[in-house]
Amino acid sequence: MTAPTRTFGLEAISQMFQQAETENRAAFLPYFPIGYPDYDASIEAIAAMADAGVDGFEIGISFSDPLADGPAIQVATQKALENGTTVRTCLQAVRALRERGITQPMLMMSYANPLVAYGTEQFVLDAKAAGADGLIVPDLPPEEAGYFADVCAREHMALVFFLAPTSNDARIKLAAEKATGFIYVVSLTGITGERRDLSTDLSQIMANIRRLTDTPLVLGFGISTPEHARMMNGLVNGFIVGSALVRAANQGTDAVSKLAQDLRNSLD
């Protein structure tokens, strides 16, 4: 059951970027794992960030072996699993957030195995029914994503692919052809986690990709401060912050809310 007042899926994501563009800023999409520090606190953190005016969400499903993640997210997702968080719990969380009236687009972030174990098609259907708008799967490159892509396309759900500083033109063209919703550009060769400084050749990396595609580009990995966020305007269509928000959650929902607010305000 989707809220009738809300546009859905690819359309919702596209509107999100259009809205940010009319405001001459980048869209801000926080990542947050369901079940950290516990289920209720993760719902509260996401609701508080929605109130702070973020543009969309990357909703984290935890995995025992998160090989693209750094220590902050490793620890948080491990805790979420110890708290009994499952794929079903995460879908339930999305439903609960929609019932609270949260309208921003939500993309489910998961490594491939929990989704395959759930059943790829069933997951896409259930995620859609819960109110999610797309999928982000960091260990699923386009050439392995055939079945995921077919089901997502049929259901008008986004399936986001990644590009990295190592991606050559052929990889950029492949991601541009296959990605729906947006392309997730990894800012550096590495894993998730806060960095003091962002790469100095970001504008060159983005220009290199932009030359070959009109698909919205969302930057992630390392972005953690309002100063970083301010640099995103004009550089990208959107950006993702994860580890810094997860770390803030150690100090409680207020700290998450404040950081999200600071990041959002820095864009105006």
């Binding site: 491939a112 490159p141 050439e143 590009l163 991606s167 990889r171």
Partner: peptide, 12 residues
């Protein structure tokens, strides 16, 4: 089989 890895190492 296959190659289920982050994009960063696909070129490698």
């Amino acid at each position: 089989g296959g190659r289920f890895v982050p994009e960063t190492i696909i070129p490698a």
